[in-house]
Amino acid sequence: MALNTPQITPTKKITVRAIGEELPRGDYQRCPQCDMLFSLPEINSHQSAYCPRCQAKIRDGRDWSLTRLAAMAFTMLLLMPFAWGEPLLHIWLLGIRIDANVMQGIWQMTKQGDAITGSMVFFCVIGAPLILVTSIAYLWFGNRLGMNLRPVLLMLERLKEWVMLDIYLVGIGVASIKVQDYAHIQAGVGLFSFVALVILTTVTLSHLNVEELWERFYPQRPATRRDEKLRVCLGCHFTGYPDQRGRCPRCHIPLRLRRRHSLQKCWAALLASIVLLLPANLLPISIIYLNGGRQEDTILSGIMSLASSNIAVAGIVFIASILVPFTKVIVMFTLLLSIHFKCQQGLRTRILLLRMVTWIGRWSMLDLFVISLTMSLINRDQILAFTMGPAAFYFGAAVILTILAVEWLDSRLLWDAHESGNARFDD
């Protein structure tokens, strides 16, 4: 018995066209964080690309023209004298008006014999932002004059995390709450300039795509075929072959399989920071003279006294001054041990922890910024005066060393310790 099946006739004509040209192939790229070699397709503007294995951002879609970056830099340069030299806060102490600005706080630190601690604050609040705007201006002028731009481009990517104007702005709020127990506070004209400078700096850093600047100024022929001998440069993120001198053909720094002496430098910085954190938390970090009496505060006791007036601000200072430094030390110690013992479990967790400490590390400088600003506000000789204690130097040095330890660690070593050939990683 035959089955009668109805015929289905399409209502619209289906047209099949042959592909007349070869589909576009992607360029081969190595991930600078996990060293995976993959094919990167062509990316349009405002599109980002991520590593298929570790999800690290390979290409950032946010990109401004150099002219727009230069305009932002010149605007920031105009704001800087007002943000640093004009009063941020006014207080009335014992019937006398006192003005506080950024430069005055750094000068008070240096004047009291601790120039190293003052230079830490100076670099993060004044030096690094000033280098940022002058570097962008150098790129703008240098591109037109045919100057060598490689050193500036190499420095810009590392400079971003040292620009800490946003953290200093939080420190202004913390210092205001600490001082309000002794005097009446009012915002100064410099505060508005400083807030504007923070906003412009944040926007500029978020749109400063150094890798795209490398592509514009020093374009290189990408690798179009897969080759395990391809290496990625950690300076400019170019994937290719080393030249005859073993250097990256684009930025001219040595092109090595792994960062040289990464573990040794990381261990040295980490152990030194552990040693410095002990006096930083045991010795007094601030000293207040009130009517001839002397009151010393460690980091913890200062947080407890701050909690009596504002528990939320005390929580912020606790996280930045105690929780973050010790968390960074514990995480980095764990990561280094996992590399030495070739741990194969929990790779995803370790990668996330490394990215976390990379982002939060700079916030530990908050305590030094609060001390710097408070020193310029309260300084009335023996009637009422505020000065920093010996722990300030140890704390600042420990924070900087932990930042350097994270920067010096080559994250690809975590993958080397893991089993080879993993296309995915999980716990």
Rank of each mutant, 00 (worst) to 15 (best):
I311L: 09
S338Q: 14
F393I: 12
D381V: 02
L234Y: 12
T374R: 00
S119D: 04
L208P: 15
G346K: 14
G240D: 06
R294N: 03
P284V: 04
I43R: 13
E161A: 13
S193G: 14
N281V: 07
E161P: 15
Q244Y: 09
G302Q: 00
K111P: 04
L153Y: 03
D243N: 04
F82K: 07
T334V: 09
Q55R: 09
E21F: 12
W92R: 12
A175E: 02
G113H: 15
F395R: 00
S301A: 05
A312H: 14
A312M: 08
F82R: 04
F122C: 13
L300M: 09
S338L: 10
L373D: 11
E228G: 10
T202L: 15
A314K: 05
G20H: 10
R355K: 15
I403F: 02
T5A: 10
G389T: 00
P41R: 14
R245Y: 10
P81N: 11
I96T: 06
I274N: 05
C54H: 00
M72H: 02
L257T: 06
L145P: 01
A392F: 03
L93F: 03
T349Q: 13
L278Q: 11
E211A: 15
A175V: 04
I8W: 11
S48V: 14
S39E: 10
W267I: 06
N4L: 08
L270C: 13
M388S: 06
L169G: 03
R348F: 12
E296G: 07
K12Q: 09
I253R: 02
V317R: 00
S273C: 12
V133M: 09
I330W: 12
R250I: 04
P6C: 10
L271R: 00
Y241A: 12
I285M: 10
A56G: 11
S364C: 04
T358F: 10
L335D: 07
W214A: 15
S206R: 15
R17E: 11
D166C: 15
I319G: 13
L384N: 01
D114N: 06
A137V: 05
N281R: 00
A196C: 15
F369K: 05
A417I: 09
G292L: 14
A269V: 04
H340L: 09
R68W: 09
P52W: 11
A187T: 14
I360E: 03
V163P: 05
L153V: 13
T334R: 14
S305I: 14
G118F: 01
A397K: 03
G293F: 07
A272Y: 02
L335F: 13
T334K: 14
L283R: 04
H418I: 10
Q220G: 04
L277G: 07
T374K: 00
G142Q: 01
F386E: 00
L197R: 00
R226M: 10
H184F: 14
N310K: 15
V275P: 03
F318L: 14
V370F: 14
L300V: 04
H207R: 09
G171K: 00
W84D: 07
K342G: 10
M72A: 07
L132D: 02
K57P: 13
M103A: 03
R17Q: 13
R226A: 14
V16C: 12
L3C: 14
R158E: 11
I199D: 01
F425K: 15
R25Q: 11
I172C: 09
K13R: 11
P129I: 05
L277F: 00
P6D: 08
V152T: 06
A71I: 13
R259L: 11
I8Q: 15
F326E: 04
D367S: 00
Q382N: 15
M304K: 13
I116H: 12
H340N: 07
Y289F: 07
A83D: 04
T358D: 09
G293H: 05
C54Q: 00
A2C: 12
A18R: 14
Q29Y: 08
P6V: 13
T202A: 10
Y218E: 07
L353H: 13
G246N: 05
N422V: 10
Q180Y: 07
G346P: 14
L354H: 10
G113Q: 14
H418Y: 11
S193H: 01
I383P: 01
F82H: 13
R250C: 13
K229Y: 07
D381G: 13
P6E: 08
C233H: 00
Q104R: 04
L353K: 12
V179Y: 02
G20C: 11
L323V: 12
K13G: 11
A320Q: 00
G292P: 01
I253T: 04
S308F: 09
D99E: 09
L159K: 01
K13F: 08
D381E: 05
C31V: 00
M120C: 03
M80V: 09
P249M: 04
L165K: 07
C248L: 00
A56H: 12
L169A: 03
L401R: 00
T75C: 15
A18V: 15
L300S: 03
W408H: 04
S372F: 06
T9L: 11
L156H: 06
I199N: 07
M388W: 01
I274A: 08
K229V: 08
V163S: 08
L377S: 02
L257G: 04
G142E: 00
M375I: 09
L23M: 11
C51S: 01
M304C: 08
W64E: 06
Q104S: 15
A70R: 09
D297M: 07
L353W: 11
T202F: 15
L277A: 08
F386M: 02
